[in-house]
Design a protein around this nucleic acid. Structure first.
Length: 569
RNA sequence: CGGGGUGUAGCGCAGCCUGGUAGCGCGCCUGGUUUGGGACCAGGAUGUCGGAGGUUCGAAUCCUCUCACCCCGACCA
């Protein structure tokens, strides 16, 4: 391909709206252009990258035994009413009406449609298992689209849904998909981690998220460098401290702390580390009771864990200041467990604290030197209430946890029978009994992967595409193209030879100044570059330079194509 | 949805406070000189100043409404 026949549209400066590196670079390199909030055009260059991702995903899905189909992007409301998700999905679903005023949505996901297919097509255990997948555009009306294609409203996704006669078979396929996903991300050249995940609103049991590791990631992941344990921070268990509670070393004291409310304030005022302060949160449980939650000052409440502690539905909310005052006689920053006639749930780390400080249930006063058993009773309940932090022991006992940030690019779920039951998607088993199918679902954010890959692979000059993702593998920069017959001839010969060998090559025949061409090819992230110029040709040479690690190699012009083909292999 | 901000040429921005009919850099077009890391010289084109209404002799500038976009938060199969 020649630049003059293709379409390059690079920018020296990125539009002001882009703050994330990948977003800026995608805009600058001309991979995407914005149409509206969360809506992007994939420009020719970007589309080539998107197609690369798609191709790898498709190949691995096929290799793993899944079969491709394509479902409508627009779906009738009735299907969603069967599962109750028409109402449940809420405003994130783009709802539309046709000319007959019938309700439709632009599909945010396809569980309902595929389950409908399955219940019509699959009758017998003999037809199971099946795994259907598609690569398709979805729309979710995100509250706040951002970071370009990373969190867009319209996006490209690979979604797969499997149907099984037994849980065992579902689990087998789940592992199969897990492995297929690992191969996909490995082939794409990404540093990733599979983490145990919360199953969220979709329901079901087993679930793993695949995260591309990047500091800009929106999700926090806890993992153990010494083992393969990894979990979403929401889910990672914070174990009870192994050290016993220290013996009391200080007398209990009540300090006047005027205007001191936050943990940081208390720490500064009393000269204590945050880890010696108990943070007291007042919540209203599902049954209406006010309950105090105790956390170590340097820890953070995990609302998912706290929710589980209260009721099957996990319902609780933070108490209002008025409710807190009514029960405890002090405001939020001055409350504590001492003498409070309400139920108390303490985090595991709290009951291992000694000589600690907390609010005195009187505005402007805090206790210090508190010890359980001496100054106050041990709490009614002890539970895991907090997010794990860097250095916590790993739940698998293998070492200490580290926290990293990740971009979720894949998700595998065991849905079980949530949808098959709701939509009576049944099959006849060996005994002729009618049973709901066991289901799994497996998603990959195809368009998001492009952004995630750039987030993980860039430098000051632009994108460093992994080989598998690059829009072109080789750039030929022809210096003096317009003027020099020799340059033109040599560049064309090299271009044709590479193309004939099946290499995706981009010949810069724009007759621009060298700096412009170098800068563009680097911005766009083409992994290999050959420079052809009169200066080199005089000595019968061309120059090779890899995008990623710099050094220039002089090549005999005659053998350049061959040399490069060797290297690319 | 709550809080904050921005809309002026393709992109990045100034002008607005203190009203007098729009400017800079990059990009674009023409000609010339250049040609191994984002050239130089000369000439040129491009704006309903996001939209509507109002105040005023006069509005990019002041007021009201509205739309869009961005940031922070809540949300995220």
């Amino acid at each position: 391909m020649r630049v003059s026949q293709f379409f390059l549209s690079t920018l020296k400066e990125a539009p002001a709206e882009a703050e994330l590196v990948s977003h800026r670079l995608m805009l600058r390199a001309g991979l995407i252009r914005k149409l509206g909030s969360g809506l992007y055009t994939w420009m020719p260059l970007g589309l080539r990258v998107l197609r690369k991702v798609e191709a790898v995903v498709r190949e691995e899905m096929n290799a793993a035994g899944a079969v491709e189909l394509s479902m409508p992007a627009v779906q009738p409301a009735e299907l969603w009413e069967e599962t109750g998700r028409w109402a449940q999905f809420g405003p994130q679903m783009l709802k539309i009406k046709d000319r007959h005023e019938r309700d439709f949505c632009f599909g945010p996901t396809h569980e309902e449609v595929i389950t409908d297919i399955a219940r019509r097509e699959l009758r017998s255990y003999r037809q199971l298992p099946v795994n259907f997948f598609q690569i398709q555009t979805k729309f979710r009306d995100e509250i706040r689209p951002r970071f370009g294609v990373m969190r867009a409203r319209e996006f490209l996704m690979k979604d797969a849904y499997s149907f099984h006669a037994s849980v065992d078979d579902l689990q087998r396929e789940y592992r199969n998909m897990y492995e297929a996903y690992s191969r996909v991300f490995t082939r794409l050249g990404l540093r990733f981690r599979a983490v145990a995940a919360d199953t969220g609103a979709i329901g079901g049991t087993g679930s793993h998220e695949f995260h591309v590791l990047a500091d800009s990631g929106e999700d926090a992941i806890a993992f153990c460098p010494e083992s393969d344990y990894a979990a979403n921070v929401e889910l990672a268990e914070a174990l009870a401290p192994s050290e016993p509670r220290p013996a009391p070393g200080a007398p209990m004291a009540r300090h006047a702390t005027p205007g001191v409310h936050s943990v940081d304030d208390v720490a500064a005022f009393l000269g204590l580390p945050a880890s010696r302060i108990v943070k007291t949160l007042a919540v209203i449980a599902g049954d209406g009771r006010l309950v105090l939650l105790l956390l170590r000052g340097d820890h953070q409440l995990n609302e998912v864990k706290a929710g589980r502690k209260f009721s099957p539905e996990g319902g609780f909310r933070f108490a209002t200041e008025a409710e807190i005052r009514a029960r405890l006689g002090a405001g939020p920053g001055s409350i504590g467990p001492v003498g409070a006639a309400v139920p108390v749930v303490a985090d595991r780390a709290v009951v291992a604290m000694g000589d600690f400080s907390c609010g005195a249930n009187a505005d402007g006063f805090h206790f210090a030197g508190l010890n359980f058993g001496r100054d106050l009773p041990l709490p009614d309940h002890v539970a895991d209430l907090r997010n794990v932090v860097d250095g916590d022991p790993s739940p698998d006992g293998a070492g200490r946890l580290a926290i990293a940030r990740g971009i979720e690019v894949g998700h595998v779920f065991q849905l079980r029978t949530k949808y098959s039951e709701a939509m009576s998607c049944q099959f006849l088993d060996e005994q002729g009994r009618s049973r709901p199918m066991e289901m799994g679902c497996y998603g990959i954010g195809v368009s998001r992967i492009v952004a995630a890959a750039i987030e993980q692979n860039h430098d000051a000059r632009g994108i460093l595409f992994p080989e598998a993702l690059a829009p072109f593998r080789v750039a030929i920069v022809a210096i003096g193209y317009g003027k020099s017959e020799a340059v033109r001839g040599a560049a064309h010969a090299l271009h044709d030879a590479l193309e004939a060998a099946g290499v995706e090559v981009l010949l810069d025949d724009r007759d621009e100044r060298p700096g412009v061409m170098f800068a563009d090819m680097e911005l766009v992230g083409i992994p290999h570059r050959i420079t052809v110029g009169e200066r080199g040709l005089k000595n019968g040479e061309m120059e090779y330079q890899p995008r990623r690690d710099g050094g220039v190699t002089a090549l005999p012009a005659a053998g350049a194509a061959q040399w490069l083909l060797e290297r690319l292999r």
